[in-house]
Design a protein around this nucleic acid. Structure first.
Lengths: 336, 336
DNA sequence: ATGAAAGCGCTAACAA
DNA sequence: TTGTTAGCGCTTTCAT
């Protein structure tokens, strides 16, 4: 019993067959006698043999693993991930592996996904799903790739997203129906299509209602920390808005906290509406009114598309756009 | 310009040198003329060449990346991860890569880490840090490994943890000082040392104060969902405890929510104390009183130990134990 | 300073 | 049904 990890050679020697036969058994190919197969399986168990992904991919040019890249493990990405995992059950012979390039507080360097994908592709993964990517204008990767919530100009890869513009419109309409007229906007990561679309949706809807947006638009980056500045600014405006539409839930929760710290009560003194419907939105002291994305469904669709790509088919829709739905909960009300 | 990803061969051909030279340049070996090195570098940039991890590790038996395995991306693991990332800056030539075996709601199958580690080790990673592992009694892996918050009997690998027993004692002492006598306990994942130690700490401290724990001890699993049952049970006890010590913050936050749903006010009607000090603990409507772990420091220490292991040194401490500190915030008060 | 050659562990034609 | 063989892309002696 060698101390080092067994190779296919060790298994072959021990089973008294050639390495080719072991390979066949390991990969479920046929052309192996049943008793040989059994004997090999026993030896494999006995030795605890596990094939090395590296060696495998080097030859087979595929690994049966797909990667999911996220810039950080925040709730939005995590929810989509769940959908991917769920959808993966319907894709035979695929393991999924999730990772994030950076884990600290610092925002990941632009283009980190390309570097990671380059190293991983052709070595470890057959394809990938990238959530809220920052890949911009980089070498076109020849790895099958699906983007969730792509950045602007990200049309080069198939994508799944929600109808952000329409969602934003729903948010504004809701607020206006309640009687609000000064509605502030807290934007998201400017390089993402979603942030631009939500912003555009807000402006369109405001203008459709004949309302001004002057001085009411601020920019965040979808993170809690990035929302602190703009939220504070909005709430200290000489004429404070009676409602704020935050472009995602994380920002909305931040707005609420800052409002509280200022002694404002939500929704009595300020209405707040978010976007996404992450689990925390429904768990907060004041359940957040928000525009819900079908997060799980997005994940399911993404892996379905990738699965098509993987077997050389063209996905039915190159750019899939799902519906957003308003969830009226406890943080919006008529203005005082 | 070939459409497929360039190999070391392509670079060599284009630069008019041998593959061996390319390899030397890529790995910073010397024995290459300065102008040759420059020429090679240019071609590398031009072609966008990136070496394939798989092929590399096959030959070199090392990859320069270390893995961090977590059972899920919950806040505790995420915070430790940050420390690891931070500590990695001091370890030359090491990239870190984080992943979780499962991403859905279902708990990962026992022993998933072993399987993953087996595939990854010797292929993709040189070593790994496993946070709150479930590896139990499996084939001893010959991969350099450091455990954070090891499971019971996990002494076979170096580990980093906090002084859980002492932390639990601090929690109980604090509650007793406030005047509580009926103190409920909501336990954590029973296979982890930390959960057993915190439990033991609670019992010891209670008994040191001459207090009974009869019917006051319940078991959760460190997750929100796993805390719902025990929390509900504790709060519906005929003689309701006036305080609950939850073995981690996630469970504590769940207790608070359930208490609220029952119309109880915290800390007026019920004191709650947690363990860990995850970011959410300080962000909640009622900032959570908790026993803080130095989460970042744990990560930093873990990678330092792994780094020693990687270069064949024996870490100074095989089992490092850091201090826990009480953070008195807004969820504990004297009983009514 | 550079290159030729051997081989890491594995899979896939092809031959037997 | 099985084994032989030729690499996959890379690093590393060892010659030159």
């Amino acid at each position: 019993m060698s101390s080092s990890r067994p190779t296919i050679r060790d298994v072959a020697d021990r089973a008294g067959v050639s390495v080719a036969t072991i390979s066949k058994v390991m990969n479920g190919r046929d052309g192996v006698a049943e008793d040989t197969r059994q004997r090999v399986k026993n030896v494999v168990d006995e030795l605890g043999y596990v094939s090395r992904i590296g060696a495998q991919s080097l030859r087979a040019m595929r690994t049966g693993v797909i990667g999911v890249l996220v810039s950080g493990f925040e709730p939005y990405a995590t929810e989509v991930l769940k959908g991917v995992a769920q959808g993966a059950l319907h894709v035979p012979a695929v393991e999924i592996m999730a990772w994030s390039g950076t884990v600290g507080d610092a925002p990941p360097p632009t283009g980190w996904e390309s570097r990671l994908l380059l190293r991983l592709g052709g070595s470890l993964i057959d394809g990938a799903i990238v959530i809220a990517p920052s890949l911009i204008d980089d070498p076109l990767l020849d790895l099958p790739l699906v983007m969730v919530d792509p950045h602007q100009g990200g049309e080069r890869y198939p994508s799944v997203r929600v109808d952000d513009r329409d969602g934003a419109r729903q948010a504004v309409d809701h607020l206006v129906e309640l009687g609000h007229r000064r509605i502030g906007y807290l934007g998201g990561r400017a390089d993402l299509e979603s942030a631009r679309e939500r912003r555009a949706g807000y402006r369109e809807a405001m203008s459709a209602h004949g309302l001004s947006t002057d001085g009411l638009m601020t920019e965040g980056d979808y993170t809690w920390n990035g929302a602190v500045g703009p939220a504070t600014r909005l709430l200290h405006l000489p004429e404070r808005p009676t409602a704020i539409f935050a472009s995602n839930d994380m920002s909305a929760l931040c707005v609420i906290e800052i409002a509280h710290a200022m002694g404002l009560e939500v929704p009595r003194d300020l209405s707040v509406i978010g976007f996404d419907d992450i689990p925390d939105a429904n768990r907060a002291a004041h359940p957040l009114t928000t525009v819900a994305q079908p997060l799980t469904e997005i994940g399911v669709q993404a892996i379905a598309m990738l699965s098509d790509l993987l077997r050389g088919r063209t996905p039915e829709h190159q750019h899939l756009r799902l519906e957003a739905h308003l969830r009226t909960r406890g943080t919006t009300a008529a203005p005082a």
